[in-house]
């Protein structure tokens, strides 16, 4: 399981809820990165040999390897294209996002 957006996050509305000093919880994702994307990577699972190069090189760690087929977390994929560029089987295509 990849981390996911904290949909329950609310900004503090009173002093008691205010964070202390300049510290707080770890791993609190309050915004997705999908809006950054111009192209989205799409895996052709027929061509994929699970070499995991994409999984390893992905700067954002959005490729999942727990299922039988590799997955992509499109909430946090920025569409950099490293996965497609490094795939030895050209199994990943970068498809223009429809706005």
């Amino acid at each position: 399981m990849k981390p996911h957006l904290n949909k329950d996050f609310r900004f503090p509305t009173n002093e008691r809820e205010m964070l202390f000093g300049s510290g707080g919880d770890t791993g609190n994702l309050t915004a997705v990165n999908s809006g950054w994307r111009t192209f989205r990577p799409v895996i052709d699972h027929g061509k994929c040999i699970r070499c995991l190069f994409c999984w390893t090189y992905c700067p954002d760690g959005v490729i999942g390897k727990e299922d039988t087929e590799l997955t992509i977390d499109y909430d946090y994929c920025k569409g950099c294209g490293i996965c497609a560029n490094e795939c030895p089987k050209q199994a990943i295509s970068m498809i223009k996002e429809e706005k």
């Binding site: 900004f11 503090p12 205010m18 964070l19 000093g21 300049s22 510290g23 707080g24 770890t26």
Partner: peptide, 20 residues
């Protein structure tokens, strides 16, 4: 209970932090 410490607080909650 892991913590993220000494982080950035932008203009939105900075005054609240300094008031504290």
């Amino acid at each position: 209970a892991p913590k993220s410490l000494s982080f950035t607080i932008g203009p939105d909650f900075h005054l609240e932090s300094r008031y504290q």
